[in-house]
Simulated scan of single mutants.
Amino acid sequence: MTIAIIDYGMGNLHSVAKAIEHVSPDERVTITRDARAIKGASRVVLPGQGAIRDCMGELERTELTGLVKELLADASKPLLGICVGQQMLMDKSEENGGVRCLGYLPGRVTRFDDTALDEQGQRLKVPHMGWNRVHQHHMHPLWEGIPTGERFYFVHSYFVQADDDAHALGYIDYAGSRAHVATGRDAVFAVQFHPEKSADAGLRLLANFVAWSP
């Protein structure tokens, strides 16, 4: 089995690769922007980090936008989106004045309210940074062995709101908003948190992705 991590210049590529290698030492993990290698892989990871306009721009600059859309439309090859890699799957993002995304899942990406207060009356921090409990909204093979309410590691100011409840696989409540931090359909599963930085729970999710046969 080959697992291809798409290298379009954005994302925590080597940390993701090391984490996947840790849970699947017998599989080949490659960081690549070669279209034939990505098409020939058994599984694909779409990472992302930073501003979504930059991520979408770099995906276009490296001539990988069409390939990613092709993979999404095919619906047979398991694909894992991470961080901005989740946000890019939506219709649009409000970041940077509005950015058109890949349009795989109907919905939008919006910013947390940085005036929201916690129960003690203290202003909640935006970016939302650190550990938070993820509540599983629908059963999914990638949740296997992970209890609902398990903690995962986040770094983000913008979050996904899926239009279709069936696509919202996990959520957190933060700054007065319900953020869909796990979304997907068919052979696609995407998360806002960083599984490669989320200790045992993150490694279990990555192992589930490697074993997933949708």
Rank of each mutant, 00 (worst) to 15 (best):
G184V: 06
A35T: 14
K125V: 12
L67A: 11
N208M: 11
H14P: 02
G121H: 04
S24G: 05
G103C: 10
V191E: 03
H140G: 08
V68F: 06
A201W: 08
G11Y: 09
E119G: 10
G48N: 09
L105I: 11
L102D: 03
G57Q: 05
G97S: 06
S24M: 04
H180E: 08
V23P: 01
N12D: 11
K69D: 00
L67G: 06
G202A: 04
A187P: 03
V181Q: 09
A35G: 00
P214M: 11
F154L: 10
I20Q: 04
M10D: 00
R53M: 04
H138T: 12
D164H: 10
R100Y: 00
S157Y: 13
E95F: 12
K197Y: 08
P78C: 02
D74P: 00
E63Y: 03
H137Y: 03
L59Y: 06
G57D: 07
E21N: 13
A182T: 15
D118M: 08
A19N: 06
K92D: 02
G202H: 03
I6S: 05
V16N: 08
M129F: 12
L117W: 09
C101V: 05
R133L: 09
H180W: 11
Y174N: 04
P147Q: 05
W131G: 06
G81L: 09
R178I: 10
D164Y: 02
T2A: 12
A162W: 07
H138I: 13
V44F: 10
V29H: 01
R108K: 14
K125W: 00
L169P: 03
D113T: 02
T115W: 01
L46Y: 13
W212Y: 12
Q136F: 15
A199E: 14
N132V: 08
R36W: 01
L59W: 07
Q49E: 15
E63A: 15
G97Y: 04
A168C: 14
G103Q: 06
F159C: 05
Y171Q: 07
P47T: 09
L67I: 10
G81A: 10
L13W: 04
W143A: 07
V181L: 11
F189M: 13
G57R: 11
G176F: 00
D114W: 03
H156K: 10
L169V: 06
R185G: 09
T2S: 15
R108S: 13
L13C: 09
A187C: 15
D186P: 02
R100C: 02
R108Y: 01
L89S: 11
A37T: 15
D34S: 10
R53F: 12
T110Y: 00
H128E: 01
